[in-house]
Simulated assay, not measured.
Amino acid sequence: MGSEAEELPVGHFDAGIVVRTSEQLGEAVRARRKALGLTQLDIAGMGNTGNRFIVELEKGKPTLQLQKVLSMLDLLGLEVVVRPKTGAST
């Protein structure tokens, strides 16, 4: 899927989004998809998945398969970065 993500237009996306809930992740995915001018059906087809998965992802369904979610993020040119919380004690 990495090569498909490179073919998408870049679009503007705030690199500073912190996601702590599945709903916030869904909102970020929806914003990126819309910034790219794509429909849910477009992404489903490009990601070889069903439209229902995309709808559930954008709604923040917490029980989606992690690898499928990561694959969709990659397709949209997004990535997950794991780091200590700002101000967290070590």
Rank of each mutant, 00 (worst) to 15 (best):
E56N: 07
V81Y: 13
R33I: 02
L76P: 03
L70G: 11
T39Q: 14
R83L: 08
S3Q: 08
A88P: 04
A28Y: 04
L73S: 12
E4F: 10
L66P: 02
I43Y: 01
D42H: 08
G87S: 12
L8S: 09
E27I: 14
D42S: 05
T39K: 15
E27M: 15
G87R: 08
N51V: 14
S22G: 11
E4I: 13
G60T: 02
E4V: 11
E7T: 09
K85A: 14
Q40I: 10
E7H: 13
G37N: 09
A5T: 05
E56C: 01
L57I: 00
L38H: 13
G37I: 09
P9D: 05
F53K: 10
L66K: 10
K34G: 00
I54R: 01
F13R: 02
L78R: 07
L64D: 05
A88R: 14
I17T: 08
M72L: 13
D74I: 08
M46I: 14
Q24L: 11
E79M: 12
F13V: 04
E7W: 06
L75P: 02
E79P: 00
L38F: 12
T49V: 12
A28D: 07
A44Q: 10
F53S: 14
R52T: 14
R30W: 01
L73P: 03
I43L: 09
N51G: 09
E79L: 09
T21Q: 01
N48C: 11
T90H: 09
L25F: 06
Q40M: 15
L66V: 12
V80G: 00
L25G: 01
L66H: 06
E4G: 03
A5Q: 04
L73M: 15
G45Y: 12
L25M: 10
T90I: 11
L73R: 10
L57E: 00
D14E: 07
G50Y: 09
T39N: 09
L64R: 03
E23S: 14
V82R: 08
G47D: 02
T39Y: 12
V82C: 04
G16K: 06
G37F: 12
V18G: 04
I43A: 03
V29N: 04
Q67T: 07
G26D: 00
G87M: 10
M46Q: 14
M46N: 10
S89R: 13
L8Q: 13
A15Q: 10
V69C: 05
S71R: 12
V69I: 11
E6A: 15
S89W: 04
G26N: 00
N48Y: 15
G50I: 09
G11R: 04
T90W: 06
R52A: 13
